[in-house]
Design a protein around this nucleic acid. Structure first.
Lengths: 163, 163
DNA sequence: GAGCAATTGTTATATTGTATCATTTCTATC
DNA sequence: GATAGAAATGATACAATATAACAATTGCTC
């Protein structure tokens, strides 16, 4: 996702975002062993449907009236763990929340920008940041397993709206 | 703190680390309005005494037998908030925990490396990482207020011990 | 359809963090 | 030193996030 499209207008057609993600997931599923059960799919769709990071209990609340009785928290966490492991969602550590991955299939660490006004989270691509982290780590003989980069601030849309 | 000294030997003289921090804090306090009350000081010393990030409830447990009855959680959080605001500790988002700042006085965002083996956390200085983040943000017209960088991995000491 | 692994259900509980209002302590000023 | 306002702390309750443990079910393979 380019820097310019990272924070789309608030009222854009978000259905397209979801469709893009789900079709990417379909491709993955067709190719191989991705057991995307109905529950997992519902959680993924829920996360994908939001540009705002959702907490596990947000998801839980919105899934309530699905089939029968509401899911237990542990079930949501289990679904999220699965989705995390398969690179379909990212955990936002500084929010204790989750956001859909914009590049499913390409397993990667996430660089996130988090708008403190509209609360939306955008995924960023930056070889420069990754390289700088790798260089620092190497200098300290530190073996990187999972870099977390979460940049809090104000997105271009909210900055523009503030004038 | 240089990359080489970021993760000192496990058995180094950690008293020196604490002393260095506390004397830096003393200087701050002498210079100006830093109301370092006994409670706040005890929490700071507790955090400074550990290379491992401490959760609020860890601190709570260790402070128990101080004066009279144990502190309430809210008191620990209040002390931590104060210390955060004055740049004496950093919050480790991915651990829900806190680590002493190694450069008190110089208000700054923290770049952290977190060893998943020994659980120690080291603060890193890297203009390159900061510049790369600033550049990415600028490209996306994103106004950075608080960059979070927490690099999980294995420190040089634990890597060496693993051979 | 029998056996095994993976998933989900159920219940309970652990961990992390805040809200609210009362009380105490500190500081500045008279 | 008395005193009033601000800052800090105490006390109680509760909210929000996350996991443990074990039972039941589903799906896959033979």
């Amino acid at each position: 996702m380019s820097a310019e499209s990272a924070f789309p207008p608030i009222d854009h057609d978000h259905g397209r975002c979801v469709d893009l993600l789900m079709s990417a997931v379909e491709r993955l599923r067709a190719e191989q062993t991705l057991r995307l059960t109905p529950q997992r799919r519902r959680v993924l769709e829920m996360v994908a449907a939001s540009h705002v990071a959702l907490g596990a209990y947000d998801i839980l609340a919105r899934l309530g009236g699905g089939n029968g009785r509401p899911m237990a928290p542990i079930s949501v966490y289990r679904a999220l763990d699965f989705l995390l492991q398969h690179g379909l969602v990212h955990r936002v550590e500084s929010l204790n929340a989750f956001i859909a991955c914009t590049r499913p299939g390409a397993r990667h660490d996430a660089l996130l920008m988090i708008c403190s006004v509209c609360r939306r989270v955008a995924e960023l691509q930056s070889p420069a940041i990754e390289a700088a982290i790798a260089a620092s780590a190497a200098a300290g003989h530190f073996l990187v397993t999972h870099p977390v980069v979460e940049i809090a601030g104000i997105c271009r849309v909210c900055r523009a709206a503030d004038r």
